[in-house]
């Protein structure tokens, strides 16, 4: 273990991989000092673990109705978080619902940033008219309020998980394009790009292999912080009945179902909201910490 740490902390690394891993290790050490960020990381890790193991750790079937046990309060035997209006165990539904949440986050996280990166780097690298047109389009999407555009899109496409993801992705890519363009502008005239160009590399190769990697840190920070917002929008769509359809245990839809019983059986709406809040807070805490660590503007301190 100590030899690994020594190898990572070696001030004169012998290979590119050693240098890169050493840098990551130092970033990790800085992140570890930030308690709030570590709490965030723990929450996100917990979400992933729970979602991965969901079918095996749910105490009850999350879908099957059991009307004899409907609306049981929390802490009743066998139902730690109580049951909903169809007698389904809320904890089991939350656990299964974590899969849906994670699935939506993952899909948005692999589509929107990639598309935004592509638009931003192309605009920044080529400049001129390409830049002008691409950035105008980006601005138009930025001028739309996110949630309302997502609502209108889902209304057109029809409710459902895939369409919700598509709508969220369409509303989330513009900020990535902005970030990536700004990063591209700072590196596109640097010597190493000129060197690659003199070697005869194509524009596609320069953008893909030499500019996009430079944008990755700022994009990662944004993705982490954005995921909190994505969770909230997805839950909002679910709440309005436009996202994942019942009986799937989507957290936002669960809140909506609990609304009828708010004043008498408060737990039905409260519990899924807590789940959304905790997971979203986790991403926010982690993203905040990552920004402190990875953002080059902060590294001077």
């Amino acid at each position: 273990m100590t030899t690994l740490v020594d190898w990572l902390r070696d001030p004169s690394p012998t290979s590119r991989r050693q240098a890169r891993l050493g840098q990551s290790y130092l970033a990790w050490l800085r992140l570890k000092r930030n308690h709030l960020a570590m709490i965030g990381l723990a929450i996100v890790a917990l979400l992933v673990i729970v979602a991965a193991l969901a079918p095996w750790i749910t105490p009850h079937d999350p879908i099957t109705q059991n009307l004899r046990e409907r609306l049981q309060p929390p802490l009743t035997a066998g139902h730690i978080l109580g049951t909903d209006d169809f007698g389904r165990d809320i904890l089991s539904r939350l656990i299964m619902g974590s899969r849906i949440t994670l699935f939506i986050i993952a899909l948005v996280a692999v589509t929107a940033p990639v598309f935004g990166l592509l638009v931003g780097t192309v605009a920044g690298y080529f400049g001129g008219w390409t830049d002008e047109i691409l950035m105008r389009i980006t601005d138009i999407f930025l001028a739309f309020p996110k949630l309302i555009l997502a609502l209108a899109l889902v209304a057109v496409l029809g409710p459902g998980m895939e369409n919700a993801v598509l709508a969220i992705a369409i509303t989330s890519w513009p900020p990535y394009a902005r970030v990536a363009r700004a990063e591209t502008l700072t590196v596109r005239n640097s010597d190493y790009i000129a060197a690659v160009r003199l070697q005869g590399a194509s524009a596609a190769r320069i953008i893909w292999g030499h500019i996009m990697p430079m944008c990755i840190p700022s994009v990662i920070i944004r993705v982490t912080l954005d995921m909190a917002g994505v969770i909230l929008i997805a839950a909002g769509l679910g709440f309005l009945g436009l996202g994942v359809q019942p009986p799937m245990p989507e957290w936002g839809a669960m809140i909506s179902a609990g609304r009828k019983y708010l004043f008498e059986q408060w737990w039905v709406a409260t519990m899924p909201g807590m789940a959304i809040f905790i997971v979203s807070l986790g991403f926010n805490l982690l993203g905040d910490g990552l920004r402190d660590v990875l953002d080059p503007r902060n590294s001077g301190k």
Partner: peptide
């Protein structure tokens, strides 16, 4: 501030109604 960023507004509204109205 971070909590404000992380709460679904419709849920916060329901909780507010439950506590301050109900």
């Amino acid at each position: 501030g971070l909590m404000g960023y992380s709460m679904p507004v419709f849920w916060l509204g329901l909780m507010g109604l439950l506590l301050f109205y109900g």
